[in-house]
Amino acid sequence: MGRFKTALINEIEKLYKRKKLVVALIISFIIIILGQLIILGVNRGFGIRGVGSMEFPMLVLSVVVNTILPLFTALVAIDSFSGEFSNNTMKIALTRPVTRLKFFTAKITAILLFVLFNLLFVMVLSTLAGLIFNANSFTLRGVIDIIVSYLVTLLPMLVLTLVIVVFTNILRSGVGVFFLSIFVFIILKALGMVFSRYSGILFTSMLDWYKLFTISPLPILKIANKFSMMVGYVIILFTTGYYLFDKKEF
């Protein structure tokens, strides 16, 4: 476990040094400010309330989860794998006394921590913005909904991360992986719209699964079903990703 921890800290440090985190946070910040400005404009201009303070973080989440969050997750994941393949820094890391499984897991954990940090940042900032600028409708239920919604989004993001990791282990070029990921993302989104009957099994439609947690009464069966489907995804993708990573010659 000690070795895993060292590998993880090492990965986090690398991730932090690449400055992607800062860029992601700045863009999230800009989106929140822009969103808030649009809503204030709508309120003053059209006399429509737009959103209440509790709805604003949800609105931001629904935008972020389908745009910048997958985008930056892809960038970070590609950096972490393809980037190191091409820079040949992967060799150095692998010479350390840590198994490839632990190393692979550490990398994914680091990416996940990045996603979590980004989500929490957006959550806190949008809640604050919502409280300051919007008609006050603060409720405990609202706060719980917000926290749960942001946290459960981590699971579909893990699925997405693993999909990209599998791609990085198949294609050599980081740019190739990036465009492939975006292509697949858009295609699956479109397929989900056309064949809405089957959209439930596509991982792109699971990004919105946090909405299930705001329904009352809580649709436990549906949540359990979605959860085990995502766990299924995670196991398949993790195993495939690790298999490819393990076979790789450096």
């Binding site: 009957r197 089957y198 439930g200 099994i201 079903n225 979605k226 085990s228 489907m229 766990v231 299924g232 995804y233 995670v234 196991i235 398949i236 993708l237 993790f238 195993t239 495939t240 690790y242 298999y243």
Partner: peptide, 21 residues
């Protein structure tokens, strides 16, 4: 171990996906 884990994953995904459809 990998094969088993893959099988578990496929089973889990397959059964829930079928249930979903």
């Amino acid at each position: 171990a990998m094969l088993i884990s893959l099988a578990v994953g496929v089973f889990l995904f397959g059964s829930t996906a079928l249930a979903e459809i």
